[in-house]
Amino acid sequence: MIELKGVTKTYGKGGNTFTALDNINLTIPDAAVVAVVGKSGSGKSTLMHIMSGLDRPSEGSVTVSGRNLHDLKKKELDQFRAREISFIFQSFFVQGGDSCYDNVSLPLEIAGVPRSKRQQRVEKALESVELTDKTRQKAKNLSGGQKQRLAIARAIAGQPRILFADEPTGNLDSATGAVVEKLLFDYARANKATLVVVTHDQDLAAKCDIQIHVKDGRITEVKQ
């Protein structure tokens, strides 16, 4: 469960402040598939950063899986993200010079998974995104859709409880976008994981269980 209470995020100091998030109160139950919908600049990305512990709120508290992120030290927060959370980004962020295998292996290495167990998990993740034949190929030789599938494999290899996807289909055509969407939904449903999709795509948002609409740093509507 992700629980936000009175979360406010402001940037800048003195008279020149900008409020990115304004008194957000929100509860996302476990295993929910949620869309955070809003235009660019609405604060939806900031909301995702704060929910994942990448950013800290100026005011309010964030509780994820029963832990108040404010109470965690930097090191504990890193470990928490490494074990329980993962990300998909609009621009993939796959490491082009590395092989697909090494890309998927990265989060497992960060989480300290022993070498002996890594291989099986990497292969399983690549299999689930149908990239087994590309295991030893360099990521830069993949197409856009393949790159995003690789990013999904990287995200799910560590079996995270919560998956954040920031505009996962933003750089893809509708056909490949649909494949990526299906992979994300399948993972969340099969593993009872929470999926938070940040998007301005209404069609994608409509496929989620809960839609949270954000505008100017406030939640305007929550549709179940």
Binding site: L54, K75, Q79, F80, R81, A82, F93, Q95
Partner: peptide, 16 residues
């Protein structure tokens, strides 16, 4: 820069 950001998001510590 992007790669560093990703590694940090995935929980890699500053020290690492």
């Amino acid at each position: 820069t992007g790669q560093i950001g990703l590694m940090k998001a995935l929980g890699m510590s500053n020290r690492a």
